[in-house]
Design a protein around this nucleic acid. Structure first.
Length: 411
RNA sequence: GCCAGGGUGGGGUAGUGGUUAUCCUAGGGGACUGUGGAUCCCUCGACCCGGGUUCGAAUCUCGGCCCUGGCCCCA
C-alpha cells in the first residue's frame, strides 16, 4: 500500500489550486483597496501564545510538540494571536491605526467533517490601535465586501456584548461565565435549569434578547445606556455603507477578551460547519505582556468559502502547442521562447508521432498549434493553426507572435 | 471522544465462500510521420491493514486505519 496523506489534510490538483489562487488574489486585492497590507507569521509558535489566549484546554486540540531544545511549540491553530504577537514584537510604535491582513494555513487536531479539516486556511484582517464607531464599522464593511466578492450567499449577524453583559450584570461572576457559555451553545434547557427559581426576570430577558432583532428593543430589554451612542453610531454607519445584516444581541462569545461589537457570517448552503466568518472588537495585547491595545478584526474560513462556492469551470487561457518535426526542433525552441517572452503560455510537444495525431492530441489542451517543420525552419517562419476555426497561416515569427497575442483568451 | 454509512487498478465499476477478479476510462509503449482526439497491436495497474473461521475469504467475523456525514468542541 502506498503512503497516505495525513488525516484531515488535502491535496490540490491544478484546477482546484487555480481556483483557490484566484479567490485568494481577489481577497488580497480588496483588502489592499481598503488600505490593509499583508503580513506573514511563522507556521509554529510557542504553544503558550495560544494557551494564554484560549486556555490550557486547547493544548489537546493543537498540533503541539516539544522541539529539540525542549520548548513546547504548536502549529498555529489560528492567526489572531500571532498577529498581535507580531504587533507587540515589531510594530508597537507604528502609526495608528495599523491595518493588516493575512492569509495562511492553520492546524487543529480535530475530527474531520464537512468544512472542517486538520489543515485549513484563514484569511483575516485586523485593525489595531484605534477604537471608535468608525473603526468598528470599517472592519465589518471590509468583511462584508470580502465575502460578497467571493460570490457566496451568506447572512451576516452583528451584535454587541454590552447587551448581554448588562442583562447579566446582576449575576455573580461565575454564574455569568456559565450563562454566557450556555448562550453561546444555545443550550436552552441547561440555561433554564441554571437560572430557574431566581427572583429577577433574567431568564426571560435573556430569551427576549436572543430573539430580538430590533436595536431599540435591545436597548429596552437590556437597559444599556452607557454605550448607547457608540452602538447607534456604528449601526448608522453600517446602514450608510449599505451593509445588509441582522442584529443579534444574543451573540455572547465565551471568550473574555472580546469587548464590544461582535459579528459572524454563515453560508446558506453548508452543513453543520457553516460559519464562514467571525470577528469583533477585542483587547488581547495586554495578555501577551504588552500595553493594553484595542483591536478589531475577523477571520474568514477560506475552505468553507470554497466549499460554498462549489465546483466552477476553470477559466480558459490561451495556450499554444508547439509541434515540431525533427528538422524543426531547433527553430521551435526559439519560437517557443519568443512566444513566452510575449506573455503567451506555450506547451512544447516533445512526442514523435505523426503531425496529425499530435494536432489531435493538442485539441482541448491548446487553442492554437504552431507547426514547425523543415520548411518553417528554412525560412524562419511559423505555421499557426487555430484549432477552433481550422484556419491555418504561415507567417514570419514576429508577425505570428503578434497574431496570437491579439487573438485573446478562448476556450 | 461518540454515532451512522462506507473502502476492489489513477478515476468509475462487476463480483453473497470456489479457475488466472469483470468491464469502462485514464496512463505507458509501438505501428503510422506535414495536418483534427482516429485505427490496430502491446503493456502497466486493485480486493485498506492485521488477526480469526474455513480445504478455500474481496465475500463471513473481530480489531485497527482511512473516507463521507452527524454529535461534542469550535480559539
Amino acid at each position: 500500500m502506498t503512503l497516505q496523506r495525513p488525516r484531515g489534510t488535502r491535496d490540490f490538483l491544478p484546477d482546484e489550486m487555480e481556483e483557490r489562487r484566484a479567490l485568494e488574489g481577489g481577497l488580497r486585492r480588496i483588502a489592499g483597496q481598503w488600505g490593509y497590507r499583508e503580513i506573514g507569521t511563522p507556521a509554529f509558535e510557542d504553544a503558550e501564545l495560544f494557551t494564554i489566549r484560549s486556555g490550557e484546554g486547547i493544548i489537546h486540540e493543537m498540533y503541539a510538540f516539544e522541539d529539540k531544545g525542549g520548548r513546547l511549540m504548536a502549529l498555529r491553530p489560528e492567526l489572531t494571536a500571532p498577529v498581535i504577537r507580531l504587533y507587540l514584537n515589531e510594530a508597537r510604535v507604528s502609526k495608528k491605526p495599523i491595518r493588516w491582513f493575512y492569509f495562511g494555513n492553520c492546524f487543529r487536531y480535530e475530527r474531520p467533517q464537512k468544512g472542517r479539516y486538520r489543515e485549513f486556511w484563514q484569511f483575516g484582517a485586523e485593525l489595531i490601535g484605534m477604537d471608535c464607531a468608525g473603526t468598528d464599522a470599517e472592519v465589518v464593511m471590509l468583511a462584508q465586501a470580502l465575502l460578497c466578492a467571493t460570490g457566496i450567499t451568506f447572512s451576516l449577524q452583528i451584535g454587541h456584548l454590552a447587551f448581554m453583559q448588562k442583562t447579566l450584570s446582576g449575576l455573580d461572576p461565575e454564574t455569568r461565565r456559565r450563562v454566557r457559555a450556555l448562550i453561546d451553545k444555545r443550550d436552552k434547557d441547561s440555561l433554564e435549569a441554571l437560572l430557574d427559581g431566581r427572583e429577577d426576570d433574567v431568564l426571560s430577558r435573556i430569551t427576549a434578547l436572543a430573539s430580538c432583532t430590533d436595536l431599540e428593543d435591545a436597548f429596552a430589554i437590556s437597559g444599556v445606556t452607557d454605550e448607547r451612542d457608540r452602538i447607534l453610531e456604528v449601526f448608522s454607519l453600517l446602514d450608510a455603507g449599505e451593509v445588509s445584516y441582522t442584529l443579534n444581541p444574543g451573540i455572547a462569545r465565551g471568550l473574555d477578551y472580546y469587548t464590544g461589537m461582535v459579528f459572524e457570517a454563515f453560508a446558506q448552503n453548508l452543513g453543520a460547519e457553516n460559519q464562514v466568518m467571525g470577528g469583533g472588537a477585542y483587547r488581547l495585547a495586554h495578555l501577551f505582556g504588552g500595553e493594553d491595545t484595542p483591536s478589531c478584526g475577523f477571520g474568514i474560513g477560506f475552505d468553507r468559502v470554497m466549499a460554498s462556492r462549489g465546483v466552477r469551470e476553470p477559466s480558459p487561457s490561451l495556450k499554444v502547442a508547439v509541434i515540431a518535426t525533427p528538422e524543426g526542433r531547433t527553430w521551435a525552441v526559439k519560437v517557443a521562447a519568443a512566444m513566452r517572452s510575449s506573455g503567451l503560455t506555450v506547451i512544447s510537444d516533445h512526442s514523435d508521432r505523426s503531425i496529425g495525431s499530435r494536432i489531435g492530441g493538442a485539441v482541448g489542451e491548446a487553442a492554437i498549434v504552431a507547426i514547425i517543420g523543415g520548411r518553417e525552419a528554412a525560412d524562419l517562419s511559423v505555421t499557426l493553426k487555430d484549432l477552433a476555426s481550422g484556419v491555418q497561416t504561415t507567417l514570419p515569427l514576429s508577425e505570428a507572435v503578434t497574431m496570437v497575442v491579439s487573438r485573446g483568451p478562448c476556450g
